[in-house]
């Protein structure tokens, strides 16, 4: 290491990670999305590496541009950019455009991975467990969910951030090409689907009220004597699959919520369902 080389300290890096984690969405807006949050997170880096007003101003402008990614996997972008800034401050030939193009090329894939792994897999699976306990009146549900989701997410994205700072681009290649991520995603996908199926069976509870009477025979309870004999929870299954079909056809969620509300209200009002 050459004398006088500028180096980020461990504390600087922890600060970047903490600001990123906490304040990325501080001024979340349509024009720059996480732009101001990104610049905020880079301030410990800027303070350490740059000292003239021109340098500081240029660095701030560099990071105020449009940026939007997943908070969790996005720490990888923060780590890589921190490393790039360090190299640049030590004389590496890294232009604003180069740093910017790295940021822009990272945010799409990182958002894709992060959104599908965290919001699409980890959250729903843990929520499924927590909700099922909660619906039974157990306060263990929310507590367990909180402990697990924080215990999994925070160490993971702290580690990603530090690894990205040290290893840069190759980390992402290792993540995506090792097949580990793909395998884990596929596994989580199957578990999530099983949870969704079980939730449908256990926690969508409604039934048909009413009996059909055919002359001469005792009246038949449609729910217990017909539907339950075919398949328990047939109606909830049908409803979930029906909504799924609508979603697949691109019908907007809020419209479906409105529709389900209305249909449920009418059928309940008429005492057909209960």
């Amino acid at each position: 290491m050459a004398a006088g080389e500028k180096k980020l300290t461990k504390l600087d890096l922890i600060k970047v990670w903490a600001i990123w984690t906490g304040f990325l969405h501080g001024l979340y807006n349509y024009e720059r999305m996480q732009g101001v949050g990104f610049a905020h997170a880079m301030i410990p880096v800027i303070k350490r590496l740059y000292h003239t007003k021109e340098e500081i101003s240029a660095a701030l402008k560099r990071h105020l541009v449009f940026f939007n990614t997943n908070t969790t996997t996005g720490t990888i972008a923060a780590g890589i950019v921190a490393a790039m800034e360090e190299q640049r401050a030590n004389g590496a030939d890294l232009s604003d455009e180069m740093i910017n193009s790295v940021k822009t090329s990272l945010m799409g894939p990182l958002a894709g991975i992060g959104d599908s792994v965290f919001q699409g897999m980890i959250f729903p699976i843990l929520l499924a467990v927590g909700i099922s306990l909660g619906l039974q009146g157990s306060v263990l549900g929310p507590i367990l969910y909180t402990v697990l989701v924080l215990g999994i997410s925070y160490p993971l994205h702290y580690w990603w951030f530090m690894a990205a700072y040290q290893q840069g681009g190759p980390l992402i290649e290792r993540l995506t090409e090792s097949g580990l991520l793909k395998q884990a995603t596929k596994a989580a996908n199957l578990v999530g689907l099983m949870a969704a199926g079980a939730l449908t069976a256990r926690y969508v509870n409604f039934k048909i009220i009413g009996k059909v009477s055919i002359s001469g025979l005792p009246p038949i309870d449609i729910q217990t004597e017909v539907l339950d004999k075919i398949l328990p929870n047939l109606l909830p299954l049908g409803l979930v699959l029906g909504i799924w079909a609508l979603l697949r056809r691109g019908v907007r969620v809020n419209r479906i919520i409105g529709l389900v509300f209305l249909v449920g209200f009418i059928l309940g009002y008429l005492k057909l369902l209960g």
Partner: peptide, 24 residues
């Protein structure tokens, strides 16, 4: 009241169907 109650019973199906949508 029973209309609102039934609507409330049906609504979770939307959540599970959304999950199914993302995962398939």
């Amino acid at each position: 009241i029973s209309g609102i109650t039934v609507a409330g019973k049906l609504l979770p199906a939307v959540g599970y169907a959304l999950l199914l949508r993302y995962m398939t």
